[in-house]
C-alpha cells in the first residue's frame, strides 16, 4: 500500500518554504492575538458578571482555563510533530516539536500557578494531591524532561529522535488529565464545557472565555512560528538561501 500525502504536507517539509510562508502569516496572527486578548481580558475582567458563590475570584478562569487547554494542545502538537519527524524523517517536524517544548512548559506553569492562586480562597488550600492537579504537574515534568533530554545530546539528529520518543511515551498523560475528574474523586471540579451538553455557565461569562481561548491560540501560533523560524535559520545556516537572506539584511 502506498499512501500519498497531500501536496502541502511535502511543502511544509521544506524549511525555506516554511520560513517564507510563516513570514506572511505572522503579522495576521500578531494582530489577531492582540485584538482577541485585549477584548477578552477587558470583557472578562471588567464586564462579565461575578459568580454567585466565588464573587470576583472566579475571574482567574479567563487565564487559567485557556492556559490549561493550551498546555495540553501544545503537548499533543509536540508529540504528533515528533511522530511525523520519526516516520518521514522530516526536519521541519522536529523543528516544530522543539519549538513547542519551552512554550508548553511555561504555559503549564501559568496553569498551575493560577490554579493555586484560585484554590487558596476557594478550596482553602494552595495545592492538593488530587488526580487532576497531579497529572497536570506530571505534564510540566514531561515538558521539562523533553527539554532536558534534547539538551543532553551533542548530535541534533539523536536529540530530535530521543525527544520525539519521550514525548510520544508521555502522550498517555493527556487523556489522564482530561478524564481524571471523571474517573476518580477529585477536589478539582469536572468540566464546565462538554461537547454533548450546554455549558454550565451563562453566555455573558463564556463568550469572553471563548475569546480568550482563541486569543491564547493565536499568541501560541505567533510564539511557535517565531521560535521555529529562528531554529530554521540556525539549522540551515550553511545553505545558500539563508546566506543570501543574511546578506540582504
Amino acid at each position: 500500500m502506498r499512501l500519498r500525502m497531500p501536496q502541502w504536507f511535502y511543502q511544509l517539509a521544506s524549511p525555506r518554504w516554511f520560513y517564507e510562508f510563516s513570514g506572511k502569516l505572522l503579522p495576521w496572527f500578531i494582530a489577531a492575538a492582540i485584538i482577541l486578548l485585549s477584548v477578552g481580558s477587558v470583557w472578562g475582567l471588567m464586564f462579565a458578571p461575578a459568580d454567585y458563590q466565588q464573587g470576583n475570584s472566579f475571574r482567574i478562569i479567563y487565564v487559567h482555563v485557556p492556559a490549561s487547554i493550551l498546555a495540553q494542545s501544545c503537548y499533543m502538537l509536540m508529540a504528533v510533530a515528533g511522530a511525523i519527524g520519526l516516520i518521514w524523517k522530516m526536519k521541519m517536524a522536529h523543528v516544530m516539536a522543539q519549538s513547542c517544548a519551552a512554550f508548553g512548559a511555561s504555559i503549564a506553569i501559568v496553569s498551575l500557578a493560577t490554579g493555586a492562586i484560585w484554590g487558596k480562597p476557594t478550596w482553602g488550600a494552595w495545592w492538593v494531591w488530587d488526580a487532576r492537579l497531579t497529572s497536570m504537574l506530571v505534564l510540566l515534568f514531561l515538558y521539562v524532561g523533553v527539554i532536558a533530554l534534547r539538551g543532553a545530546f551533542e548530535n541534533a539528529q539523536s536529540a530530535d529522535k530521543a525527544a520525539a520518543v519521550l514525548s510520544l511515551v508521555g502522550l498517555v498523560n493527556i487523556p489522564i488529565i482530561k478524564y481524571s475528574v471523571e474517573w476518580w474523586n477529585t477536589l478539582h471540579q469536572p468540566a464546565t464545557f462538554t461537547v454533548t451538553e450546554k455549558p454550565a455557565m451563562p453566555p455573558e461569562m463564556w463568550i469572553p472565555l471563548l475569546i480568550m481561548v482563541l486569543g491564547f491560540y493565536c499568541f501560541f501560533s505567533v510564539i511557535l512560528m517565531q521560535r521555529a523560524r529562528l531554529e530554521v535559520l540556525q539549522r540551515e545556516m550553511k545553505t545558500s538561501w539563508v546566506q543570501a537572506l543574511i546578506k540582504s539584511l
Binding site: 459568580d51 472566579f58 478550596w123 471540579q189 464546565t192 455573558e204 461569562m205
Partner: peptide, 18 residues
C-alpha cells in the same frame, strides 16, 4: 483537622442565582 470546600462546575451571576 482540615476542611476544604469543593467547587462544582456551575457558574452563574448572583442575580440569576437569587
Amino acid at each position: 483537622i482540615e476542611v476544604l470546600a469543593k467547587h462544582d462546575e456551575n457558574y452563574m451571576p448572583p442575580e440569576i442565582a437569587e
